[in-house]
């Protein structure tokens, strides 16, 4: 768990211009692809200067090999989850761009796998945030949200970290194989071909208000 917080800390302190894209593609049969991209390339100098240190603000700075090892461990765990396939991570340690992707048989499988890994990482202690379901699909609509941030993370966030996170971007994209009829989040933006919908915010706003990404997306009727 120390490493998990270490990675989170690294992400937060380096986030002078972090770009995060979460991209969920749900087919009509409920299966699909999930992609998660973290782009830290605009902070390469800062990241490398931090990685050159042993510790920062009393916290250990993980080495590249430790980060690699930890990410590979997560990957191995995910590969073993039933219902997930083609689990891949493209980690670029020169530009610090990390692209994760996996295919799932249905959104519940994806959600369950992520919850199980978080639970394992926390040594099976009770995490109330995991009671929340952030994905629901019934064939005609997709309900998306994200879990609330633990209060201690948001309350203890330093002002300078908050300022840095405000400069970043967070894109949440949902894609389908049929057109979107309507959606209930007013800040969401529909693509020209009506097959995708996007919500753009910044990581800081998200830590303060997780409802920003809540959306129920209604699709056109399935052609028979």
């Amino acid at each position: 768990m120390k490493y998990f917080f270490g990675l989170l800390f690294l992400l937060f302190t380096m986030g002078s211009c972090v770009e995060i894209i979460d991209d969920l593609y749900v087919k009509s049969d409920g299966s699909g692809t999930f992609k998660y991209t973290v782009n830290l390339s605009s902070s390469v100098v800062k990241i490398n200067s931090i990685l050159a240190l042993d510790s920062l603000d009393g916290r250990k700075v993980p080495s590249i090999s430790e980060i690699q090892e930890k990410l590979n461990a997560y990957l191995t765990k995910l590969e073993k989850k039933e219902g997930l396939s083609n689990v891949k991570l493209d980690a670029n340690y020169k530009d610090f761009i990390f692209k994760f992707q996996c295919e799932f048989t249905n959104v519940q499988v994806l959600q369950k796998a992520i919850k199980e890994i978080v639970q394992e990482e926390n040594k099976n202690t009770e995490i109330k945030e995991l009671d929340h379901n952030w994905l629901a699909w019934d064939g005609t609509k997709l309900v998306r949200s994200i879990p609330t941030m633990p209060e201690k993370i948001t309350e203890r966030m330093k002002k300078e970290d908050a300022e840095a996170l405000q400069k970043g971007t967070y894109l949440s994209i949902s894609r389908f194989d049929r057109t979107i009829e309507k959606y209930d989040n007013p800040v969401a933006k529909l693509s020209g071909n009506k097959l995708a919908i996007l919500i753009k915010t910044n990581p800081y706003s998200l830590t303060q208000n997780t409802e920003l990404l809540e959306n129920t997306i209604y699709l056109s009727a399935l052609k028979k």
Binding site: I21, T37, N39, R175, S191, G192, N193, I197
Partner: peptide
């Protein structure tokens, strides 16, 4: 930077 297409995202 990730540049997205307005038509398909």
């Amino acid at each position: 930077e990730f540049i997205y297409d307005e038509n398909t995202f």
